[in-house]
Design a protein around this nucleic acid. Structure first.
Lengths: 232, 232
DNA sequence: CGTCGACTTGAACACTTTCAAACAAAGTGG
DNA sequence: CCACTTTGTTTGAAAGTGTTCAAGTCGACG
């Protein structure tokens, strides 16, 4: 593990409140690893051995069933994934693969479970982290069930627009096929939907998204903190 | 609060491990309330004031957006709901209504947050509860994205069949329109799908489900612990 | 017995996927 | 540096899936 990794991890909400001694012990059992793009880090159904932390790169969480697969989430630095499986000592529900060259920290699940039994602050942080993850998936499920695909695409664009603040254009963070899968549709359908949304104040050329009429796009998406997450 | 309520609550995984003194304190601030069927207990977007525990009856968690609504989960005795919102002190993501005459225990959210900062065992139980909730929603989302509506219906039937053990018939626990909404489809579509599934070893008359060929139904559903939950 | 809501059924419609093909962009090897 | 492969994207047409609307049936409850 590189010395520069530690402060970044330490500042994550999950680890920032715990005792230094416990943090150090957790990190003692941990190790870092570099992966090229396209590596399957974990496979759904496998026993949960390590909490993963993405320090550099990007990781896709996806699910498979009956020969299909769909992306469930995107984890970017600095972020953790599959906390819940580690806690429950249960099989992973999702698989994970690197989308780019990535640097991952691995913390043994038993260490994790041992430490939060000892460090109340870490326990509270874990509770908050899990509650946040839970709410994120609930919002995702709500979007799938309540919005049409056109509305989901519009909401996705609006959400990312707000992250880049008042600027009127941005680049899609990942391939369109992944966005399509995340939004529960085929790449073809996403492509067509983006074309149709040109009538609603947004243009997509390659990975570049340009908004010409935010109000109009927002009218399609009807952004809602209960579906799209809090404003930041 | 009735004296008979306490032992039931105490035996919930969430509360069974905590110190008696802390449990008693938590219950001191709590109160019970009886509701008729069809009452909206909480509305999405409202601030999270109370952890709810269903002691008798049944509660539907549902979400609304853009004039539509969909059921997200069903809570039956003895079960809790909206733990995550209470923890994060954030707005409810879902609304809740009683499906039958129900008895609900309400625990003030601030009490909850205070106690798990003090009682490590309760913190650990909370962590486990949240991790379980998270995994349940992930499975639900996976089902929505990976299975067709026919497969979802078949899986729903298989799942409930296993709960009633080797018996070959059971009654649907709730109205079909709720099941349809839970499975992300219209009542009409569910009705037709059930009719079509008669070719696959299952017959539904009213609320009565009779399985004539389990293997065949299971072949349609392809039940999978990563989507349908663990075997019990 | 009548009313209301839930359920079913049919037909038309809308939306989404699938399949096939063409195009574009990125990376590989000569 | 340029063909060349590979992979992602776009587009069209056909097929499939799911929804909507409308009407009718059934059963529970007052």
């Amino acid at each position: 593990m590189r010395p520069s990794d530690l402060p970044e991890i330490r500042h994550l909400p999950l680890f920032s409140e715990m005792l230094q001694a416990n943090f150090e012990q957790l990190m003692q059992g941990a190790y870092a690893q570099n992966f090229p793009a396209g590596v399957e880090l974990i496979h759904q159904g496998d026993p949960a051995d390590f909490l993963h932390i993405v320090v550099e790169g990007a990781v896709e969480l996806f699910a498979e069933w009956g020969g299909q697969s769909c992306t469930m989430a995107l984890v970017q630095p600095v972020g953790t994934f599959i906390l819940a499986a580690c806690i429950k000592d249960a099989p992973y529900l999702m698989s994970a693969r690197t989308l780019e060259k990535s640097r991952i920290i691995l913390i043994p699940a038993p260490d994790l479970r041992a430490v939060f039994r000892r460090d109340p602050e870490f326990a509270v942080s874990t509770i908050n982290e899990l509650a946040g993850c839970y709410r994120a998936v609930v919002r995702h499920a709500k979007g799938l069930k309540l919005r049409s695909s056109r509305e989901r695409v519009a909401a996705y664009l609006v959400k990312h627009l707000r992250r880049v603040a008042p600027r009127q254009c941005f680049d899609l963070p990942v391939e369109k096929r992944l966005i399509a899968s995340y939004l529960g549709m085929t790449p073809e359908n996403l492509s067509r939907t983006l074309r149709l949304l040109e009538a609603d104040g947004v243009t997509v050329l390659g990975t570049r998204v340009t908004v010409t009429d935010y109000a109009r796009l927002a009218a399609v998406a009807q952004p809602d903190p209960l579906l799209d997450g809090p404003d930041p």
